[in-house]
Amino acid sequence: MVEGTASPYRILIAKPGLDGHDRGAKVIVRALRDAGFEVIYTGIRQTPEMIARAAIQEDVDAVGLSLLSGAHMTLFPRVASLLKEEGLGDILVFGGGIIPDEDFPLLRKKGIDRVFGPGTSLQSIVDYLKEALARRKQATDGKSKARKIKEGAKAAK
């Protein structure tokens, strides 16, 4: 890999709470691996704190949460806010499972970029992720460039 060429995106797939339905999460892990992502899977029964710590230590670009038990309204936002507290608000948080449509807007407000329900095609998840991560990368590259320019201006004074 040449300096500057893109390395694969790293994704953490995690199952918060006591929900044992792990088929969907495993299907997602495999689909993302086959689409060229490096995927880390936490396994079931993770607290939001464990998930945030794993995301930090693994320096992932995104965290995908899977939940079929109905506890998503408390657990998903908790993970997003823990990441923000650690200064890692630029990690993309998304999710899936049994999640009623009417919950989407509030989840989005609380930092969950998007959720996918049963029957979603895997390709559409892959496409979404590639697109969303490319967009974020552009945004953060822009930000650090802007900061450099600002610092440069300061130094010149």
């Binding site: 694969p8 495999r30 992502f37 995927v39 880390i40 899977y41």
Partner: peptide
């Protein structure tokens, strides 16, 4: 290991 086909990987040790 990375998949030689996709370049992706399932990193399963942490589990």
């Amino acid at each position: 290991p990375s998949s030689p086909v996709s370049g992706g990987a399932f990193l399963g040790d942490r589990l």
